[in-house]
Amino acid sequence: MVVFYRRMPRFEYLKPQRFEDVLELLQNSTPNRYRVFAGGTDLMDQLKQRKINVPETVIDLKGITELDFINFDKSSGLRIGALTTVADVAKSPEIEEHYPALAQGAREIASIQIQNRATITGNICNAVSSADSAPPLLALGAEVVCANRNGERTIKIEDFFSGPGQTVLNPNELVKEITLPPPVDNSDSVYLKLAPRGRMDLAWIGVAVWAQISERIFNNVRIGLGAAAPTPIRTPNAEEALCGLDVVSENIEAAAAIASGEASPRENSFRAGSEYRHMMVEVLVKRVLTQLAG
C-alpha cells in the first residue's frame, strides 16, 4: 500500500515541565506508548510519512527549560543540555573558541530555521550516520549523560551509536546532557563536510579531527567520521599511526589512507558509491589535518 500522506497521524500530545516527570512516564511505558522529541525536526517528518510506528503519545521535551543550557568551565569542560538548540551551539563564543569543530558542525546542519529548532542531542539521538554534530563530538571526546528514574550513567560517544538510526539508550532512558573534556593546551579541531549543496544536504562524508600539536609533532589525535560507516565512527588506527610523528605532509597522507581503510561505507547508497566515499575520507582527512598543521 502506498499513500502519500499530507496530514499528521492522530496521537496524544504531552508537554511536561520537569525532566523527572518524563522519566517517570517512560519508566512504566510499554512499546509504542511514547515517543519523545526535542526540536521535532526529524520525528515530525517521520510521523507524517508513517516511516515509524505511530505512538499513542508524543512527549514534547521543549518545556523542560532546565535542560537548555551551555556551561563552560576551563577546568571541568563543557556541558550542553539536552534541550540546547543547534543554533545556540553554533553561536556560542566558548564553543567557537575551545571546541571549534563542534561549532562548525552545528553550522553545517541544514537551514537556519532547522538550526533554530533542532537540538544537538536530537541530532545524535536520531543517529543517522551523516549527522553533522557526530564527527566533532567523536573527535572532541564527548560523553553522553543518560538518565532514567533510578539514576544516571555516562556513555562515551563512540559507544552511543549501535546501528543506523539506533542508539544504546534503553526505552526508559533519556539523554540529559552531553559533556566534553576541558580544553587542552596546543590543541585545535576542525570539521569539514563534503556535500554538493553544502549544509542543505546530508553529508556525503563528514570529517572532524581534534589534534594536539607541539613542536611540530602530533602529540594526540582523534578523528571522527560521518557517513563513512553504518554509524559515525572513530578511526583508531589512523589516530595511533599519527601520534608522535612529525607534522609533515607524508605523515598526514599516510594517516589519511589508513583512515580511509577504516571506513566501511554502504555499498548501495544512492547518494554516493562506496569507492568514492573511501576516496573522499582520504581527501577530507588529509585536508583537515593539513588545516590543523597550519
Binding site: D201, L202, F270
Partner: peptide, 10 residues
C-alpha cells in the same frame, strides 16, 4: 532533500 535541485548557493 534527496533529489538535488541547485539552490541559490549553487
Amino acid at each position: 532533500v534527496n533529489y538535488m535541485m541547485p539552490l541559490s548557493t549553487e
